[in-house]
């Protein structure tokens, strides 16, 4: 049976979702459970693991901003960076309130986007 025939059945996407989606994702969580079970709450090893996890998530963040998916990719990179910068600055100015940061970034992006549309 070729891939083309398989792809046309109704159940093939669900096999993909279960094997290539669910198993490929949850296996890391399960490995994390077993590998993390022996870590001590106050240990040096945990500090390192947390650093690795934090750096990974930070990498996801800068990728989402610099190389976005979908329509956001059509906006100029400086607009996305400026909106993020404004949001992060507002987050600090508001004594680290996340919602202020998020709303400021969105407001800056929308204003910039509309202005560019008018000019272009």
């Amino acid at each position: 049976m070729t891939d083309v025939l398989l792809a046309e059945t109704w159940w093939w996407p669900f096999v993909m979702i279960i094997v290539a989606g669910w198993l490929a994702t949850d296996v890391w969580r399960w490995l994390g459970v077993f590998a993390g079970g022996r870590l001590r709450e106050d240990g040096e090893l945990l500090i390192w693991v947390r650093c690795v996890a934090t750096a990974l998530v930070a990498g996801v963040i800068s990728k989402l901003i610099l190389f976005p998916q979908g329509v956001l990719a059509d906006t100029p990179i400086w607009l996305r960076l400026a909106a993020t910068g404004v949001g992060f600055a507002a987050f600090f100015a508001a004594r680290q309130r996340v919602v202020v940061g998020v709303l400021s970034a969105e407001a800056f992006l929308l204003c910039g986007w509309l202005a560019l549309d008018k000019l272009g």
Binding site: G21, V27, W28, G32, V33, L39, R50, A53, L56
Partner: peptide
């Protein structure tokens, strides 16, 4: 290939879960 692509995108879940366990 789809499984490998998703697995690579999900590696970060392992250190995240590890860091959560002692808590």
């Amino acid at each position: 290939p789809a499984g490998i692509a998703v697995a690579l995108a999900s590696v970060r879940l392992m250190p995240m879960t590890m860091a959560l366990m002692p808590l």
